[in-house]
């Protein structure tokens, strides 16, 4: 970091990188403030506030919550477990990218495909929000995810991800 960086505010692109979201999503959130900033620069103290508004969370840290001999299946079962653990009410929804943030690129690829498949299967529902694309559970989504997490009800369509 250059010395001058200690004193200069962050650009929108830098904050977006920091939050691991697309700058256009951040720009959309900034628009909700209702007033035009004299310059699109941000103090470090604003980053946490913006993270909260954006709903950015990192679910994947350390070991996978579900172990399985097959890496792809472990990822999908872990995804299901994480969603069930985080979904704490009928109105619950979360940023779609929270479902794979923190994973290595190869693992992200598997989880993203799994999320798409879960939306096709009607387990998850995508919801457009100003802060970014969200997903929520369908009516029986929690139950179906619980079966995926414990390995008793993994849809055949997901098995193609690791077979």
């Amino acid at each position: 970091m250059a010395v001058a960086d200690l004193f200069e505010k962050l650009t929108l692109t830098q904050v977006a990188r920091w939050l691991d979201i697309h700058p256009f999503e951040l720009a959309r959130i900034i628009g909700l403030e209702g007033s035009v900033r004299p310059e699109l620069r941000f103090g470090e103290d604003e980053v946490d506030r913006l993270r909260d508004i954006a709903g950015v969370e990192t679910w994947w840290t350390g070991e996978l919550p579900v172990s399985d001999d097959v890496r792809g299946r472990a990822l999908v079962r872990s995804l299901a477990r994480l969603v069930v653990e985080h979904a704490d009410g009928e109105d619950w929804s979360t940023r779609a990218d929270n479902l794979f943030r923190g994973l290595e690129p190869a693992d992200q690829w598997v989880v993203r495909r799994a999320i798409n498949q879960l939306i096709r299967e009607g387990v998850l529902v995508s919801v457009s929000k100003a802060t970014g694309l969200h997903v929520r559970l369908s009516g029986d989504g929690r139950e179906r995810l619980a079966h995926i997490a414990d390995g008793s009800g993994i849809p055949e369509s997901l098995e193609s991800l690791w077979s």
């Binding site: 977006a16 979201i21 256009f24 993203r112 999320i115 529902v125 995508s126 457009s128 694309l133 997903v135």
Partner: peptide, 14 residues
Amino acid sequence: AGASADVPGDAHIE
């Protein structure tokens, strides 16, 4: 990179 597709309805995330 870093974005989920912003699509309406029951579309996929990307």
